[in-house]
C-alpha cells in the first residue's frame, strides 16, 4: 500500500486554525456562515431520521462541508453541477433553499425534485444543480457531457462532477477522465476522498490512497488539498475553474476529508454493519473545518464567540422554520406517479 497522501490523511495533523492566505476576512465570515448552515442542516436531518420523521436513507456529509463551500464560491447559476448520494451540501452551498431540500427529503411536492427524488435524487436547476443520484459514479460521465455542451454552446460555463474515492473504482470514471481531456471539456472533477466507501477503508480497496493519480494518468491539471481547510479548497478550485473557463480543458481537485457519521443515516459508530474506530472519528472531529476557520477569524480579530453563538441561534431558527414548513406541506398527488415519466403527456 502506498500512502501517497502522506500527512493529509493523518488525523493527528491539521488541527490548527487555517491559514487565511490573503482571502478577505469579510468573504471568510460569509463562508463560515455557509459552513455552519450546512453542518446544522445535516445534523438536523440526522436527528429527524433518528426520530423516524424521515422515511428514507440520508447520507450525511458532516465534516466535509468545506469542499462544497470552497468550490461553489467560484460557480454561477449557469454552471452545471452534478452530485452523488451524499449531496445535501453540494446543493446548499450553491445557495439552494433549505426548505426545498427538507421538503424533498420528506417527499413533499414542494421539494426540489417535487417530492419524487428524496435525499438521494436532488435537483435545483435554478442554482446550477443538474442532479445527484445514488448509483456510484453515475453522474460523472453526464457532467462531462454537460461540459462538452458548454463548449459547443460557446459559453464559458463549466461543469462540476463531485464523486468519492469509492467511485474511482468504477471504470466509467476513467473513461470520463480520458474523454474530458481529449475533448477539452470545461469541467472540474472534485474527488472528496474521505478514505471510505461504505464499510471499507481505501487501503482495502486500492493500492494507493491517492486519487489524484488518475488525473496524472490522463494529463489533467490537478491539485490535492486538505478538504477540511476552506481556504485551501477555494484557492485551488479557483485556479482550476479559471483554467476550465479559459478553454484549457478539465481540472481535477482531490480534497482529503472524513465523514463524521457512518455511511448512511445518523449513527457515528457504525458503517453499514461494521464498527468504526471512534478513536479515528474523534481525531478527525478535531480537524473540524468550522472550528479551524472560526479560530482563524477570531485570531484576525473579526469574529468572536458571542457572534458565533448568535449565528448558530439565527441559523437554528431558519432551519426550524424551513423544517416546520416542509412538514406541513402536501405530498405529491397520486397522479404524479405516471405524469412525470415522459416529458409529453400525449398532448404534443
Amino acid at each position: 500500500m502506498m500512502h501517497m497522501l502522506d500527512k493529509l490523511s493523518d488525523p493527528e495533523l491539521f488541527h490548527d486554525p487555517v491559514d487565511i492566505n490573503g482571502v478577505p476576512t469579510g468573504l471568510l465570515v460569509d463562508q463560515l456562515r455557509d459552513l455552519v448552515l450546512l453542518r446544522m442542516a445535516e445534523q438536523h436531518l440526522a436527528a429527524m431520521r433518528k426520530d423516524g420523521l424521515i422515511g428514507g436513507p440520508v447520507h450525511l456529509g458532516v465534516g466535509q462541508e468545506a469542499i462544497a463551500v470552497g468550490v461553489s464560491k467560484w460557480l454561477r447559476n449557469s454552471d452545471r453541477v452534478f452530485g452523488t448520494h451524499r449531496s445535501h451540501s453540494h446543493l446548499l452551498a450553491l445557495g439552494s433553499s433549505l426548505h426545498g431540500l427538507f421538503a424533498e427529503v420528506l417527499g413533499k411536492e414542494t421539494g426540489h425534485s417535487r417530492g419524487m427524488g428524496g435525499s438521494m435524487h436532488l435537483y435545483d436547476r435554478s442554482n446550477g444543480f443538474y442532479g445527484a443520484v445514488p448509483i456510484v459514479a453515475g453522474t460523472v460521465s453526464l457532467a462531462v457531457g454537460a461540459a462538452m455542451a458548454a463548449r459547443l454552446q460557446a459559453t464559458d460555463d463549466i461543469a462540476v462532477a463531485y464523486f468519492g474515492d469509492g467511485a474511482c473504482e468504477e471504470g466509467i470514471v476513467h473513461e470520463s477522465l480520458n474523454l474530458s481531456k481529449i475533448t477539452k471539456a470545461p469541467i472540474l472533477f472534485v474527488v472528496e476522498n474521505n478514505l471510505f466507501a461504505s464499510h471499507m477503508h481505501v487501503t482495502q480497496r486500492q493500492p494507493s490512497d491517492s486519487m489524484v493519480r488518475f488525473a496524472h494518468a490522463n494529463g489533467i491539471s490537478s491539485a490535492v488539498v486538505d478538504g477540511n481547510d476552506v481556504v485551501a479548497v477555494q484557492n485551488s478550485a479557483r485556479k482550476l475553474i479559471q483554467e476550465a473557463r479559459d478553454g484549457k480543458g478539465p481540472g481535477y481537485l482531490e480534497a482529503v476529508t472524513y465523514r463524521w457519521y457512518g455511511h448512511v443515516d445518523w449513527r457515528d459508530d457504525i458503517d453499514v454493519g461494521v464498527k468504526r474506530s471512534m478513536d479515528d472519528v474523534q481525531k478527525w472531529r478535531a480537524r473540524d473545518p468550522i472550528k479551524r476557520l472560526k479560530h482563524a477569524l477570531i485570531n484576525e480579530g473579526c469574529w468572536d464567540e458571542l457572534r458565533h453563538d448568535e449565528l448558530c441561534v439565527k441559523l437554528k431558527n431558519e432551519i426550524d422554520h424551513a423544517w416546520e414548513r416542509a412538514m406541513s406541506d402536501s405530498y405529491p398527488d397520486e397522479s404524479k406517479l405516471l405524469d412525470y415519466v415522459y416529458a409529453s403527456l400525449g398532448d404534443d
Binding site: 428514507g56 417530492g115 406517479l337 415519466v341
Partner: peptide
C-alpha cells in the same frame, strides 16, 4: 405501474 419507483411515501404505497 409503468413508472420508476417513487420515493415519496404516499406514492410508494400505491
Amino acid at each position: 405501474p409503468d413508472a420508476p419507483a417513487p420515493t415519496s411515501r404516499v406514492l410508494e404505497k400505491i
